[in-house]
């Protein structure tokens, strides 16, 4: 499968992924849940509606576009899942982290430009958590990529070392995709929201762009987390299913953490990612 095909498929099915995860979670919680195609309907409905904004300021207008551009770039720099270890891919964890920071910078500025205290609250939490997730994000991806000049080489003797890095990335992903225990996609309670809070003022087609960007980011994170595990092609698809299942399990089994306990989650992610690289350093010596 060529890389362009993967980008197209991810762009096409990113909302479906969200639909499947939501449906699974609903089933897990004993509800029938909405159809897996619901995100497409939401996007279609929102795209058809007019947008209402607080005032015509540059940042408020620009932010949905920047978020979408960042998400598309993210999806297109994610390595191909069909590549084997022999066709080692190159991946730049630092550039990815700074690219995501660009999207966040503009979104947070747009939120602060609305003058609303709700957006300010979400902005403060977003920048605080982002400064804590950057290190585990970079290190989890480096864990697999540092050995031969940025190309992916799985640890020769064990799935566990890969699993540590993938686990760290999963924890970061929970925060980046606004999931329990960091955030909750289901509620719209202004005092607890982080990601939804940032875009509270958006509606209509602008919100559709932001939603679609979030779906794209989520699907790219799915692929990255699955790629950290051994195997390629079908095996990676299998790992993507495992990532989805773990998210559903976590969202069902846990409640939202208290805000100031979330940093402990990120500390665990940092420790997992450090452990994964540390074990590989020892492993290489042997």
């Amino acid at each position: 499968m060529s890389h362009a095909a993967q980008i197209a498929l991810l762009a096409l099915f990113a909302p479906l992924l969200q639909g499947i995860v939501s449906r699974l979670r609903a089933r897990m919680q004993g509800r029938p849940g909405a159809s897996v195609w619901q995100p497409y309907r939401d996007l279609q409905k929102l795209w058809g509606k007019d947008a209402v904004i607080p005032q015509r300021s540059m940042f408020v207008l620009v932010a949905p576009g920047v978020a979408l551009g960042v998400a598309v770039t993210f999806v297109s720099i994610v390595p191909g899942i069909a590549a084997t270890d022999a066709q080692a891919w190159r991946f730049d964890a630092v550039a990815l982290a700074l690219l995501l920071a660009l999207g966040r910078f503009v979104t947070v500025l747009a939120a602060l430009d609305t003058r609303s205290a709700f957006e300010g609250m979400a902005a403060g939490r977003e920048i605080a958590f982002a400064s804590l997730t950057e290190a585990p994000l970079i290190l989890a991806l480096l864990g697999s990529a540092f050995l031969s000049d940025g190309s992916l080489v799985h640890a020769p003797n064990g799935i566990w070392i890969d699993a540590l890095a993938a686990g760290a990335l999963l924890l970061v992903m929970l925060s980046e995709t606004a999931r329990i225990p960091v955030d909750n996609q289901q509620t719209h309670y202004e005092l607890t929201m982080i990601h939804e809070g940032l875009v509270l003022e958006y509606s209509g087609w602008q919100l559709a762009m932001l939603r679609y960007a979030a779906y794209l980011r989520q699907s790219a994170f799915f692929v990255l987390a699955a790629l950290l595990m051994p195997g390629s092609g079908v095996a990676t698809l299998g790992w993507m299913a495992v990532v989805g299942a773990s998210i559903v399990l976590i969202e069902t089994a846990y409640a939202k953490l208290r805000l100031f306990e979330v940093p402990q989650l990120f500390a665990s992610a940092l420790i997992l990612s450090l452990a994964s690289i540390g074990l590989r350093i020892v492993d290489v010596l042997r």
Partner: peptide, 13 residues
């Protein structure tokens, strides 16, 4: 890397 975000910004405006 900044190409698409800038293009997106133009598109949004």
């Amino acid at each position: 890397l900044a190409l698409l975000p800038v293009a997106g910004a133009v598109f949004a405006v």
